[in-house]
């Protein structure tokens, strides 16, 4: 347990001291304020527009963290023998992977916290400055929606670990992770469209079952709709919310378990 906690702290410190991470923290503080510029182009409810823009910013930052901080760190660990050093402490291989995962997940929280704080300040500013254009109240559903958006990136982080233990290096990991990310954004909406009654009735039964199966199995990491609905105070049924939370934790858990099984048997040359 000590070793695991020590590696979680070590991973967090490693990410935290990285200059790129410090720039991301600065971006979390500044970007919500910069969003005031594009927001002013819309003659709509400014609060709603701002919520939408903040979600875009959050997607960018979290994806940036996974692709440009977590991926290079893990790929380098395996490629450049840092994991040999860490495993020689000694640490179990599964402890090493899990601690690295939790350390990196923990490093996402300060980014999230800063973004939430800065967003809240911007909301207050907008509501005070332009009350006539702001009907959306500042209730807790906006931060909740923003926090739920973190789950797909925790799942993506799990997938990253799975890819890294199989891949031969950072370039290969980058290509595969990008493909997973792209597919998990692009395919689910298409499958959802195919499942609509007007399309489904014209489809052969076998194909429909296949599409339905794919729709259930394939990860939907966009999460944009559900968390954005919540941010706009449009509550989904509770079972849908639970399914969303469980789905993403399950993706992360499955990816990590397979990664651990592979890593246990991997030759670290």
């Amino acid at each position: 347990m000590n070793a695991a906690m020590a590696l979680i702290r070590f991973t967090f410190a490693e990410v935290f001291h990285h200059r790129a991470y410090q720039l991301m923290m600065l971006a979390c503080l500044l970007l919500p304020w910069l969003m005031l510029v594009p927001m002013s182009l819309f003659l709509l409810d400014l609060g709603k527009v701002l919520a939408d823009l903040l979600f875009t910013v959050e997607h960018m930052l979290m994806a940036g963290f996974v692709f440009f901080m977590a991926l290079p760190l893990m790929a380098r660990d395996i490629e450049q023998k840092i994991c040999h050093l860490l495993l020689s402490v000694p640490l179990k291989r599964s402890t090493y992977l899990l601690s690295r995962y939790f350390g990196m997940s923990a490093a996402m929280l300060p980014l999230m916290g800063l973004l939430l704080l800065s967003s809240a300040a911007v909301f207050v500013f907008v509501a005070y400055q332009w009350p006539d254009y702001t009907t959306m109240d500042l209730a807790w559903h906006v931060p909740l929606g923003e926090m739920l958006l973190l789950l797909p990136y925790l799942a993506l982080l799990g997938v990253l670990f799975l890819i890294v233990v199989f891949a031969s290096g950072s370039s290969e990991s980058m290509v595969f992770l990008f493909s997973v990310w792209l597919l998990s954004w692009a395919v689910p909406p298409v499958l959802e469209a195919l499942m609509r009654p007007e399309v489904a009735t014209k489809m052969p039964h076998g194909l429909f079952v296949l599409v339905q199966g794919l729709e259930y199995i394939l990860p939907d990491l966009t999460s944009a709709k559900l968390s954005l609905d919540i941010a706009h105070a449009q509550w989904p049924p509770p079972d849908m919310l639970w399914a969303y939370v469980c789905e993403h934790f399950s993706y992360a858990a499955i990816a990590l378990i397979v990664a651990m099984l592979r890593f246990e048997r991997k030759d670290l040359a």
Partner: peptide, 28 residues
């Protein structure tokens, strides 16, 4: 128990030597 020195690993550039060694002590 064995302690190991790998051949030319790249060390975590953002951390200090002391932080690295403290990690080993904390883990053990």
């Amino acid at each position: 128990e064995a302690s190991y020195l790998p051949e030319q690993p790249q060390l975590p550039g953002a951390l200090s030597p002391l932080a690295m060694l403290r990690f080993k002590c904390a883990a053990r």
